Amino acid sequence: MLSIGEFSKICEVSTKTLRYYAEIELIIPDEINPENGYRYYSIEQLKKMLFINRLKSYNFSLEQIKTILESEELLDEKLFLALTGKKKEIEKQVQEFEETLAKINNDISNLKLGKSIMSYMESIDVQLVEVPMMYLLSIRKMVPEHEVAEEYGNCFSKLFRKIAGDKLTMLAPPMVLFHSAEFSPSGLDIEFAIPVKEYVTGTRDFYPGLCLKTIIYGSYSALPSVYTRQREWAEMEGYECDNALYEVYVTDPSQVSKESELITEIYYPVKKKLKRK
C-alpha cells in the first residue's frame, strides 16, 4: 500500500487534487484508516491514476474521464470513440493555430515594410457582377443565435430530400440568404436555399441582379473582413444595398478535411445611389 503522499509523488498529482478526485469518485483510496483518516492507495491504482493523467493531457474533462472509466465492459470501445473524437478536435485546433500563426507572420512582415496591420484588406477582391434570375427551393425562418449551426444541417437535409423525392435538378450549390442584419429577440431571419431548374411548390423567383461578389478560399473566419471590404467598396463607388446578402457554399463543409479547402462566394446585391439635388 502507498500513503497519499507517496502516491502523490509517484503520479505527480497533489494530495489536494487526490482528495478532490475522491470526492467526485474519480479515484477512491483503496483504504482509509478509521482512526486517523490516513488514506492509502494500492499499487494497482497507480496505472489508473496514470490513465487519468493521460486523458487529462488530451484535454478530456474530469466528467468525460469518469464516464469512460465507468464503462468497464465497453471500456476499449468507449475509449476508441472518445480518442477518435478528441483527435479530430485537436486537429481542428492545430489547424486554427497554424492559420493564426500565418496571419501573425504576415502582419509582422507588413509592419517591417511600414504597412498597416490592416493592409490585408486591400487583397480582398471585390467584383461587380450581374446575377441572373433563378428559382430557389427554400426554407425561410427566424433562427435563434444558438441554433444557427444546427439549422444549417436540418434545413439543407430537408431541401435535399425534397429534391431527391421530386426528382428536381440542382443548378447551383446551396446558399443562405440573410434577410435581417442582426439578431432580434426572436432570432435572425435566414433563408436556406438551393437553386433548381424546375418551378414547383416550395420554390420562388429570386432576382439578385447587380451584386458585389467576393470568393473566399478557406476559413469562414474571413467573412467579417469580406463584409467590411464590400461595404467600403460600395460606399466608395456610390452603391447601396438592394437585397438580402447571400452566401453560396461551393464546397460542402462536411466533405472537406481542412478548412483551407473551403470555397465560399459572398454576394452583396447593390444599386447605384440616387444623386441628391
Rank of each mutant, 00 (worst) to 15 (best):
M1H: 10
L2K: 03
L2C: 02
F7T: 01
F7A: 02
S8P: 01
E12D: 07
S14Y: 00
S14Q: 01
S14H: 00
K16P: 00
K16G: 02
T17R: 07
T17L: 11
L18A: 05
Y20E: 07
Y21W: 12
I24F: 06
E25P: 09
P29F: 00
P29N: 03
E31C: 12
P34T: 03
Y41Q: 00
I43Q: 11
L50I: 04
F51G: 09
I52D: 00
S57A: 11
N59G: 06
S61H: 04
L62P: 02
L62Q: 00
I65L: 11
K66T: 05
I68P: 05
E70D: 09
K78D: 00
F80H: 13
F80D: 13
T84Q: 12
G85I: 11
K88T: 02
Q95N: 10
E98Y: 07
A102W: 06
K103R: 14
I104K: 06
N106Y: 13
D107N: 15
S109D: 03
K112W: 00
L113S: 15
L113I: 11
G114P: 09
G114M: 15
M118S: 15
M118P: 10
M121D: 09
I124C: 15
I124G: 12
Q127I: 08
Q127M: 09
M133K: 13
M134K: 13
L136W: 01
S138E: 02
K141H: 05
H146V: 11
V148R: 06
S157E: 08
K162W: 06
I163H: 04
M175C: 10
M175I: 06
F178S: 13
F183K: 06
S186T: 10
D189S: 09
E191W: 02
A193T: 03
E198I: 15
T203A: 04
G209L: 07
C211D: 02
G218M: 09
Y220R: 15
A222F: 13
A222C: 14
E237R: 13
G238P: 08
E240S: 14
N243W: 06
A244H: 01
L245K: 05
Y249W: 04
P253M: 01
S257W: 03
L262K: 10
I263W: 05
T264D: 06
T264S: 11
I266P: 06
Y267S: 06
K273M: 08
R276M: 04
